[in-house]
């Protein structure tokens, strides 16, 4: 479970302090499917970076599965990222010199897992993403949709509890985008907490909970109860009344 208490994230721009996140209180339960929406500069990506432990709050505390992760040192945060959090980026961020299989394998390499175990898990991931025949292809030899599926396989190879996706379909055509979002939703249905940052209203509408942000604050937090009940997950809460 994710719990943010009075999170403040300020940046100093020149002499001015910009409140990228302003007094955020948010709870996201395990297995939720959350979309974060809002205009540019509203703090969506900053929130995602904080949730992914890529950034630290200026004030407030972040509890992940009951543990205050803002108090962890740099190494512990890296380990937490490796084991509990997966990232899917708009621009895929695949390493060009590595094959699809090697890109997927990276988090396991960083975790120090033995090669035999890695190969087995990578094979399974490639199979589930229908990429077995592309295992030894370099990213530039793959289509956009395939690249994003490689990125999803990489993000989930360590079986994290949270998957953070920043505009996952932003660089894809409609068909590939739909394919990618269905893959993510399938993972959510299997129990992973899925948090998607997007500008795309249609994509946001697919989630069971939609958080709207404006000027670093949570402006709305709505739950599609039907979908939420359908997926069997009960939503968490924010400082904004659910609709």
């Amino acid at each position: 479970m994710i719990k943010l208490n009075n999170i403040q994230r300020n940046f100093l721009v020149g002499n001015q302090t910009v409140h990228a996140l302003d007094n955020i209180n948010l709870t996201i339960n395990d297995g939720e499917y959350v979309s974060v929406m809002g205009p540019s500069g509203s703090g969506k990506s900053t929130l995602l970076n904080l949730l992914g432990l890529l950034d630290s709050p200026t004030e407030g505390s972040y509890f992940l599965n009951g543990r205050n992760v803002t108090e962890l040192d740099e190494n512990e945060q890296a380990m937490t990222r490796n084991q509990n959090i997966g990232f899917v980026f708009q621009v895929f961020h695949l390493i060009p010199r590595l094959t699809a299989a090697e890109n997927i394998e990276l988090p396991l390499v960083l975790a120090g897992i033995s090669e035999s175990v890695r190969k087995e898990r990578v094979h399974h991931a490639l199979e589930s993403m229908k990429l077995l025949d592309r295992a030894h292809h370099k990213p530039q030899e793959l289509s956009g949709g395939q690249r994003q599926r490689v990125a999803i396989a990489r993000a989930t190879i360590t079986e994290p509890s949270i998957l953070l996706a920043d505009e996952p379909t932003g660089n894809l055509d409609q068909k590939s985008g739909l394919n990618v979002i269905e893959t993510l939703e399938l993972l959510n249905q299997k129990g992973i907490t899925l948090i998607v940052v997007t500008h795309d209203a249609a994509l946001g509408a697919r989630s069971t909970r939609s958080i709207g942000m404006i000027d670093g604050r949570i402006d709305s937090d709505s739950v599609d109860k039907k979908s939420a009940n359908h997926s069997g997950n009960s939503p968490g809460e924010s400082d904004v009344t659910h609709t």
Partner: peptide
């Protein structure tokens, strides 16, 4: 990217 995947600064 490596950091986001769990590489520490030391790594």
């Amino acid at each position: 990217l490596l950091k986001s995947l769990g590489a520490s600064s030391k790594a």
